Computed example of a mutant assay.
Amino acid sequence: MRLHRLDITAFGPFGGTQQIDFDELSAAGLFLLHGPTGAGKTSVLDAVCYALYGAVPGARQSGQGLTLRSDHAAPHTRTEIRLELTVAGRRLEITRQPPWERPKKRGAGTTTDKAQSWLREYDTSAGAWKDLSRSHQEIGEEITQLLGMSREQFCQVVLLPQGDFARFLRADAEARGKLLGRLFDTHRFAEVEKRLAERRRATEAEVRDGDAALLEDAHRMHQAADDSMPLPDLAPGDPGLADAVMSWAAIARSTARERLTIAHCARTAAESARAAAERVLDDVRERARLQRRFAEARERAALLEERADAHRAAQKRMERSRKAEAVAPALDLREAAETEQRRAAADEARARA
């Protein structure tokens, strides 16, 4: 937000019309409002706040327009605040007139005029001011949306009322924190902090559960490996537990791999020894088989030697039988001839008889 010009009429200590050119004041950078008490320094800031939000800061807003009117103003001069500013890239002009108890035009006494507000925007393409609204509510909503602050926030952040700064400096840390929270609207940050704290607690619970599961796995590994290397003396949730367990597991894994390599070598050596033993066993078995066959052969040879005489006698008998078999037909013929001869002799004897 950048202020350009402020016109004050019959407001606060100013009985007439006062114009403040902020562009000229801020041409060199920062500027200072100074003067004796009652000169109207605070009234200038009140006028800016009233032009923006239709109310002044702090307790001075009680009574609204009746207390804002200058006691030095002429009876027929109406209180008016006109502020020209640039906000969010738009050049606006806000004019506000608080309620006014003026003399009646006819007769004696006074009458009260309602508060009036105007909002205009400078159209650069047309080079002229364009009316936007005359509604107090619409103007208030538009300014609040453009500035991003309500009147209370604007007064707390931009226009720190008199006495509040001194009270802020004298306040303790807790009160100062609460005031700063109101000044800068840290409620959303508190909500974010609360959410982060809840997420931290949930994450810590997850970490503890994960650490517990990790320790259980580590204990099972320790029991299975029967390793003399002690586990890290840490509890679930302790810082560095995961790294310590992973380091222990890495060492245990390296040791197990070394043992596995040694076991593989031992198994290979055992397999080689077993193969050599099997070859020796096969040779021994073959020698034993041959020895059994040799012993059996010797037994059979001895048995044959014992039966050699009977074998030779049998062979002689067989030879005689073979020879007798050759003359067997002749013997048969002889027997047949003898039989025939005996029959013929008998026949002869019967014939002679």
Rank of each mutant, 00 (worst) to 15 (best):
A301W: 07
V284T: 15
E305V: 03
R298Y: 03
H311N: 12
D282N: 08
E299F: 01
K323H: 10
A302H: 09
E299P: 00
A302S: 14
V280I: 10
R298I: 02
R322T: 01
E286V: 05
M318V: 11
R289A: 11
R300S: 12
E305D: 14
R287C: 10
L304Q: 05
L304K: 05
A308K: 14
S321N: 06
A324S: 09
E306R: 01
H311D: 10
L304W: 05
E278W: 02
R320T: 04
K323M: 04
R312W: 00
A310G: 13
S321P: 00
L303K: 08
A301K: 14
L290Q: 14
V280G: 02
K316H: 15
R293A: 11
D283V: 03
A310W: 11
E325W: 00
H311A: 15
R322F: 01
A326N: 09
E278L: 09
A301D: 09
R322Y: 02
L281Y: 06
E305F: 05
R287Y: 13
M318H: 15
A277K: 05
E286W: 07
R300L: 14
R289M: 08
H311C: 12
L303S: 10
V280W: 02
D282E: 15
R312V: 01
E306G: 01
V284L: 15
E325R: 00
A313T: 13
A313K: 13
L281H: 12
R322L: 02
E286F: 04
R298S: 05
K316E: 14
A313Y: 10
L303W: 06
Q291W: 06
Q315Y: 05
M318P: 01
R317M: 11
E305R: 04
R292T: 01
S321R: 03
R312F: 01
R312Q: 06
R307Q: 11
R292Y: 03
E296H: 01
R285Y: 08
E306K: 00
D283E: 15
V284R: 15
K316M: 12
L281W: 07
R307C: 06
R279V: 04
L290V: 10
A326E: 06
A277E: 08
L290I: 11
Q315D: 13
E296K: 00
R287M: 13
E286R: 08
V284W: 12
D282V: 02
F294C: 07
E305S: 07
D283N: 08
R287G: 05
L303A: 15
D283M: 09
R298C: 06
R300W: 07
